[in-house]
């Protein structure tokens, strides 16, 4: 079942992968596996928390993900103040 921990907007196009391996280095939840000269593979997409590190460091733009601040309290504030973007932690 989709929940706060496994619903996400991660998209990956292996056709564009240049095999640099950066996605598997930066991901804190080991969503990608790379190596052996093959294109990176999505091995655990449900664990993605949309931090955006992979997309930022993917040169060919093979990875897309809507990354944002993840705190409920920040989103509540954003909703109350009608701002589009949630911000938190100062």
């Amino acid at each position: 079942m989709a929940s706060a921990s496994n619903l996400n907007t991660l998209e990956y196009d292996p056709e564009l992968c240049t095999r640099c391996g950066m996605c598997s280095i930066v991901c804190p939840h080991r969503v990608f596996a790379s190596g052996n000269g093959a294109a990176a593979r999505l091995i655990d997409p449900d664990s993605c928390m949309e931090c955006g590190a992979c997309a930022l460091n993917c040169e060919p733009g093979a990875i897309k993900v809507d990354s944002d601040v993840g705190c409920a309290s920040a989103m509540i504030m954003a909703a109350l103040t009608r701002r589009k973007e949630a911000t938190c932690c100062g």
């Binding site: 989709a2 929940s3 706060a4 921990s5 496994n6 619903l7 996400n8 907007t9 804190p28 939840h29 664990s47 993605c48 928390m49 949309e50 809507d66 990354s67 944002d68 601040v69 993840g70 705190c71 409920a72 309290s73 920040a74 989103m75 509540i76 949630a86 938190c88």
Partner: peptide, 20 residues
């Protein structure tokens, strides 16, 4: 408990929004 999503290391904003 819902607000604790902001302190965890694994929740995604999309998932948190849906839960809210």
């Amino acid at each position: 408990a819902l607000n604790f999503t902001g302190s965890t290391t694994f929740t995604s904003p999309t998932g948190v929004k849906r839960e809210m």
